[in-house]
Write a protein that binds this DNA or RNA. Sequence first.
DNA 1: AAGGAAGACAACCGCTCCCTC
DNA 2: AGAGGGAGCGGTTGTCTTCCT
Length: 364
Amino acid sequence: MGRAPCCDKANVKKGPWSPEEDAKLKAYIEQYGTGGNWIALPQKIGLKRCGKSCRLRWLNYLRPNIKHGGFSEEEDNIICSLYISIGSRWSIIAAQLPGRTDNDIKNYWNTRLKKKLLGRRKQSNINRLSSESPDSNKVEGSSSSMALSQSALERLQLHMQLQSLQNPFSFYNPALWPKLHPFQEKALLQSMTESSNSLMQQFLSSPQGNGQKLDIYEQLSGSVTLDQDYLKFENPKVDGLENSMDGLTSSDSPIPFVNGNNVTESSMGARADAVEQSEVAIQPVSTFQPELEDIISNKASGFVSHEDQIAEFDCFKEMNVSKDSLIWWSSDFETKSASSTSWESTSVLQSDGMFQDYELTYNM
DNA sequence: AAGGAAGACAACCGCTCCCTC
DNA sequence: AGAGGGAGCGGTTGTCTTCCT
């Protein structure tokens, strides 16, 4: 027994809106508002449209101050940074870009930005796969059933692309992971734990880890750069995540924000302790996801050719994105969010509900 | 110039969240 | 407390436009 449809599907018009329909809707809403009921609105003004359709039309096109097209470099950067940080939360991303709608940003991302950033990477992967043995088809096939979402994978790829510009091994180094606002980190962690197997667990279970001890930080000694701002955030309790990381006790976790005790009010020294204690007995994971493994092993073994890295860098040069401007935009994000006057939008930081949303998810 | 391919964008669909009763 | 219904969101599809051969 499904739920009742929101409108009589047989009697509603679909497809593009005519100027007359637009005018009717706009005139009515400007005069009377939506009345808090989109479903009833089309009947009131004699439109043969679904209420949801009216809402979409108003929000995306008829509202005042809507901007279309012509995304600036800054907007590109913001979208990229936020997408990598929090994924396809288009409404949240849109809230940081006054005048932009979630639909607009979503379309822009899907049709342009994503291709711009991932295109070269994918092409190089295709080239490589095509030169591999026919067995690679098996990997391809199994990847279709993998639990890691495409979005998460894309974000991982994008993040690794960025980090590879600065440090080819940085993926293994959480200290070099995006410097995010706590909210963003929550969201990122949430998206990771949503994967059937923790992304974190998988990367910790990289092929090198086959029952051996792997000290990630020792491997990286010398390349670890600790950022005090990164360490300073109020660390949330992340009960759910600990559960999701089977086999890793909280004290084992090399991920600073996983273990609240290590991070809350942590100092550089405390962080260093955590790093020193980060020897983890890596257990193989049977459900290891081939594509992620591929990505990780590429990085770990330096499989990505110098040419690829240059190509990846080129793709950002195309965007006129300087390396400096790719410092994850976090401080900018905080500034903007804190003082956001985002037009008719919900600022991330201002949105208690949003915050609660993530916290609830975390405490589950 | 014509036809097909690719790109861009508008709109729809279905799901989840959240509020109200 | 929980059921019902509207709002909001993200994924997907459809259609129009532009580009390429």
